[in-house]
């Protein structure tokens, strides 16, 4: 069991966002977090990373150290003065990784995320999809055990979205880490999430994704039937 939430109570600007008893996130799983805007999806990520603190209750981590948690933010915030390869090297430099290892890891990520041709470009010269790929690759440089992603594909076109989604699934399989992905896109939630977490009535509700792992899901009727069912559930709340 990776993360255990116990009796969490969180109030933001006099609105109670969370009042839940117990909830747990398993290891090596992709979770997608869905729910209406303003319900507290991003706040939950802040609570998990410790940026915000619950008014009462606990968040307990098992097998995960705080330094192994990483967030990829909603609007990728790459430093404008760094090139793509420098941006990928930054987390490694901060964590005192040797130069040789930095070079090999950066080269590996540039290749995996098809960024080799942009290695020496700065963020202003990249498209939205390329920026997002860099942000995700940067988040993966340190091989985090828990990766939190806040709307990783918002404002991207469908092709770039699908590319990023496939990258995320592949990387999770390779690394066996846990990903918690906030999204407002139901199709994305259904495609990425092994388990979908519905934020509702100040609580979290788990929905197991029966279509996860199926081949060519984007062409499958079952997948779209599940999306419709999921959309209904989100709207009902």
């Amino acid at each position: 069991m990776g993360i255990i939430i116990k009796d969490l109570n969180f109030i933001y600007e006099q609105n109670q966002l969370f009042k839940m008893t117990n909830f747990h996130f398993e290891d090596n799983t992709i979770y997608t977090l869905v729910g209406p805007s303003g319900i507290g999806k991003s706040t939950l990520l802040d609570l998990l990373t410790g940026v915000k603190h619950p008014h009462s209750g606990d968040i307990l981590y098992q097998n995960i150290h705080k330094s192994e948690i990483l967030t990829i933010f909603q609007n990728n915030h790459l430093f404008p003065w760094l090139t793509v390869s420098e941006a990928l090297a930054l987390p490694l430099k901060i964590n005192n990784v040797s130069k040789k290892q930095i070079n090999s890891r950066v080269m590996g990520l540039l290749k995996t995320f098809r960024l080799e041709t942009f290695a020496h470009k700065r963020p202003h010269a990249l498209s939205g999809g390329q920026l997002q790929r860099v942000a995700i690759a940067q988040g993966l440089t340190l091989n985090p055990k828990l990766l939190l992603l806040d709307e990783p594909t918002s404002s991207l076109d469908q092709e770039s979205k699908e590319e990023i989604q496939d990258h995320l699934i592949n990387e999770q399989r390779k690394r066996n880490n846990t990903m918690i992905i906030v999204t407002h896109d139901i199709e994305e939630a259904a495609y990425l999430g092994q388990e979908i977490i519905l934020v509702t009535n100040k609580q979290l509700k788990k929905i197991v994704n029966p279509t996860f792992g199926e081949k060519n899901r984007r062409q499958s009727l079952d997948f779209y039937a599940f999306c419709i069912q999921l959309r209904k559930q989100v709207r009902q709340k």
């Binding site: 990373t49 940026v51 330094s67 990483l70 915030h77 430093f79 003065w81 760094l82 901060i94 964590n95």
Partner: peptide, 29 residues
């Protein structure tokens, strides 16, 4: 310097000196 940049540095577990070296100095150059 945008707060988000600071959040990114904290995300990578940077210390004060690293914040100055990798964020503040390039940003104020």
């Amino acid at each position: 310097i945008p707060d988000n940049y600071q959040r990114i540095m904290s995300n990578f577990q940077s210390n004060t000196w690293q914040n100055i070296r990798y964020l503040i100095l390039p940003a104020i150059f």
